[in-house]
Amino acid sequence: MAGRHGRNKLVFTALAWVLALLVFFPLLWTLLTSFKTEGEAVAIPPKFLFFDWTLENYAEVWERTDYLRHLRNSIIISLGSTLIGLAVAIPAAWAMAFSPTRSTRTVLLWMLSTRMLPAVGVLVPVYLLFKQAGLLDSRSGLVLILMLTNLPIMVWMLYTYFREIPREILEAARMDGATPLRELAYVLAPMALPGIASTLLLNVILAWNESFWTLNLTAASTGPLTAFIASFSAPEGLFYARLSAASMLAIAPIVVLGWLSQKQLVRGLTFGAVK
């Protein structure tokens, strides 16, 4: 029996690794290409590992483009929209989790339904409103929009986390004589923080990669990395090595964050329907 199980494990392991590497391959290939010279990048047959490793593409992207500015824009927009969103979502989720009323369920579902509103349905008015308000091509405009589009997800995620904090613990704290402020500091915050952290993480990722509003509402200077890469394609599309370096620079921070948050991802994106 042990032998059969052992052999199965080896077969499954081999198969899983082959398939996983296949799925991961485009990223791996981009990473490798980013270290090649432009000539090696388009060589046929392709060079996999044996080429002259160089960092010149990164240097060039760094010097010749506004990578840093777009990186800063991405950070400001994703972090800004998420933090403001959390400031609005935490009290709302809190209220619904701990003082539920008969309409709580309806409110939650309604909030979710706003997330399903297709962006194109409101593209025209948002564009015109932004134009009038001078928000077009501004970071604050994008912060606002991304905060609004992710707000339902934040409320939902936080709600599912908060609901798991047992009411009896809060009641115990009240019996033990904790004032509301102390209850918050000693009991609520430590228990709610993990949920808030994973909500923050997932929504930063979503905002970082959002590429409908970021492409439609910004031009060159205020665009985040999504727009940077999109504009990169036009003049430099055929410079594969440089494109790869720029791509790696655009996705690396968030892919790493994603690895850290993959456990919470499922629950966040399914609104708690799958845990």
Binding site: P26, L27, N209, L215
Partner: peptide
């Protein structure tokens, strides 16, 4: 063996912004 790493490899594409994945596929 190595389920953690396999998981990380498989899940990675989800975190790639659409403009990057589209350009990588289109060109390379």
């Amino acid at each position: 063996y190595g389920r953690g790493i396999v998981r990380v490899l498989v899940v990675s594409p989800f975190f790639v912004m659409p403009t990057v994945s589209a350009l990588v596929w289109k060109n390379m």
